[in-house]
């Protein structure tokens, strides 16, 4: 869940991103002051095939790599196509664009302002996750997931 008072932005690229590009971008983004939360969105890349005739067979995929952002290592579970950001203020957007400019040199991208994260839990959220679910991540990620959010040390 996010607080409605914080502005949000998203970075949409012309192509789905390789893990190396995501790593470069995030390492640029974390140097920008005033970003509260980042969600990496895109189609999921499961480690085993979830259904079909080859169910449970391992699914090696070059887009599901380990990336290192700042000091933190994390495994990508999606083929990143959209990056949602919760900002402290709208003033951050120009520096966000500057960070993107250094990374996206071979294809285009857009930084859009809008509301992309949930601000209120829905009835389905209540039914799915129960009354004691971690409200801070409802609407961003699955609160039942064993892997929690990655905390990046900012520059504050």
């Amino acid at each position: 869940m996010t607080e409605a008072k914080f502005p949000q932005a998203r970075i949409v690229t012309e192509r789905l991103l390789n893990p190396e590009t995501v790593e470069r971008l995030l390492n640029q983004i974390i140097t920008v002051e005033g970003i509260r939360r980042i969600i990496l969105n895109g189609p999921r890349l499961p480690s085993t095939i979830p259904y079909g005739p080859a169910r449970n067979v391992t699914n090696p995929h070059s887009m599901r790599g380990m990336i290192k952002v700042g000091d933190q290592e994390m495994e990508l579970a999606v083929h990143v196509g959209t990056i949602l950001l919760e900002l402290e203020s709208r003033d951050v957007i120009p520096s966000l664009k500057a960070a993107c400019d250094t990374v996206f040199t071979e294809f285009t991208y857009r930084v859009q302002e809008g509301r992309y994260m949930k601000t209120e839990p829905t009835l389905s959220d209540y039914a799915k996750y129960g009354p004691d679910a971690d409200k801070s991540i409802i609407g961003m990620s699955d609160p039942k997931s064993k892997t929690g959010p990655v905390i990046l040390q900012g520059i504050k």
């Binding site: 690229t13 012309e14 192509r15 789905l16 991103l17 390789n18 590009t21 189609p43 999921r44 890349l45 499961p46 095939i49 080859a54 699914n59 090696p60 995929h61 070059s62 887009m63 083929h79 196509g81 071979e106 294809f107």
Partner: peptide, 17 residues
């Protein structure tokens, strides 16, 4: 879906590389 950086169509199972 948008194409990958190398121009390939997205495939969750990456049958072809």
């Amino acid at each position: 879906l948008r194409l990958a950086e190398d121009g390939m169509m997205f495939d969750m199972l990456q049958r072809c590389v």
